[in-house]
């Protein structure tokens, strides 16, 4: 993983996705998302059709950032779990490995207790994948470094 950018390769993406799928099944959840703290969607699984996943990722990150700011004000490092209860659907948001945000959307087929339990287990798995990815010594495939002025210009034609 490069210092300047967060690189997600096929292998890590696959590992994240299979952990998310398992969590979704185990927790009887509708949708599960993995987002980075800057608000970019990494992977998702479930009934995501019709959901604006880009906006959801950005707002989830904003939510964690804002509550993190609140936490600091009372001397806490952060609030690592947030739970939002709706009329039909609920949202469980948690921080994974200090860098990622796990979002689980579920309805009455599941419960907050079950989701919390399954999220705890899945978080350990996701954190391991993240650590492995960060420790990966495989060199960045260099797509950014190889960009030319012409490539950049071509975006605006």
């Amino acid at each position: 993983m490069s210092q300047n950018h967060f690189v997600l390769r096929e292998q890590e993406y696959g590992a994240f996705l299979s952990a998310l799928r398992k969590l979704r099944t185990d927790a009887f959840a509708k949708v599960v998302f993995l987002v980075d703290k800057n608000g970019t969607l990494l992977a998702s699984t479930g009934e995501a059709v019709g959901l604006d996943t880009t906006a959801l990722a950005s707002l989830a990150a904003g939510n964690i950032a804002a509550t993190g700011g609140l936490a600091n004000l009372i001397g806490e490092k952060e609030f690592s779990i947030l739970f939002h209860e709706g009329e039909r659907d609920n949202m469980h948001i948690s921080v994974v490995g200090d860098r990622l945000i796990l979002v689980v959307i579920f309805d009455r087929r599941s419960s907050v207790g079950l989701v919390r339990l399954r999220v705890r287990r899945a978080s350990e798995e996701l954190a391991k994948i993240l650590v492995a990815a960060e420790e990966s010594t495989v060199e960045d495939e260099g797509v950014i470094e190889e960009l030319t002025e012409e490539d950049i210009e071509s975006l605006f034609r």
Binding site: N4, H5, F6, V7, L8, R9, E10, Y13, G14, D36, N38, G39, T40, L42, D140, E141, V143, I144
Partner: peptide, 15 residues
């Protein structure tokens, strides 16, 4: 920090 996703072939940047 930009985010490069080799799986979905995307470069994401924040302005």
């Amino acid at each position: 920090m930009s985010f490069i996703n080799y799986s979905s072939k995307e470069i994401n940047c924040k302005i």
